[in-house]
Design a protein around this nucleic acid. Sequence first.
DNA 1: TATTGTTATACTCTATAACTATA
DNA 2: TATAGTTATAGAGTATAACAATA
Lengths: 139, 139
Amino acid sequence: MTDHTDPLAALPGYALRRAANAMMAELAGRLGEIELRVSDATVLLLVGERCDMTSSEIGKVLEIQRANMVPLLSRLERAGVIERKPIDRKSQAIVLTSAGVDALARVRDITGQFEQDLLDRIPAAHRAHFVPALQALIG
Amino acid sequence: MTDHTDPLAALPGYALRRAANAMMAELAGRLGEIELRVSDATVLLLVGERCDMTSSEIGKVLEIQRANMVPLLSRLERAGVIERKPIDRKSQAIVLTSAGVDALARVRDITGQFEQDLLDRIPAAHRAHFVPALQALIG
DNA sequence: TATTGTTATACTCTATAACTATA
DNA sequence: TATAGTTATAGAGTATAACAATA
């Protein structure tokens, strides 16, 4: 028998990376059933909360480069869940189509269940500390 | 002024992904100064703790696919920090060279400081809960 | 038969530089 | 001058299938 325990497991940065990879793989699998990526779902959730954001604004909030928003929004547009509404001749608001509203409802179901399952895996004593700790590491 | 606050920030999965991305970008920057990637450093730390592991065993512990270990170890071998020691005609043990021992010392300095800085960013009240919560999400 | 190391390949995410058209 | 949207490109992580050689 080989030793499969992980001597690095106690390192916070290492554990953070492993946990994020595991959870994102899990979420990607669940969202795959409605043909969406994690980043797609994130954009839909944001657009559902805040109307008439431009591509650049979405990118700033989610920390996605402007350039990387292009294929992402093209994909969502091709899927028929968002459309572009001109603000002026330079900027466009990203809005949900009616199919997008339906898709968002399914995204909310899936991510809501996912977030619940994630929290349930954390022992109760540590649960309330999880998000505040993570937030201290962002930005 | 546009609103740059993030309505998704309270979601545990989302915060987990954002925190991991931010911290790994930070660590990658620090390790870049000694020309190593995060995954390179992780392998060196593991090999430093456990002698004579094969490529497959390292991959199992770190959850890196066998196939993805190949370019990783080739890179470390080319950098002169590891070498392969035949176990039988099928398997090879991965061992540190003397340059590898030096490199590992620098990796330990950098990652030790990084882990400390990471923990320092977490408010004291939440700090002790961080790793246990993450470990509950792994595997 | 199962496992080791390997090749080839592809997809996703992320990052940067540069261009245009407009504010 | 600065910003919005875009193009092109590259680096890095991750995933699968398949093969030869060996246990």
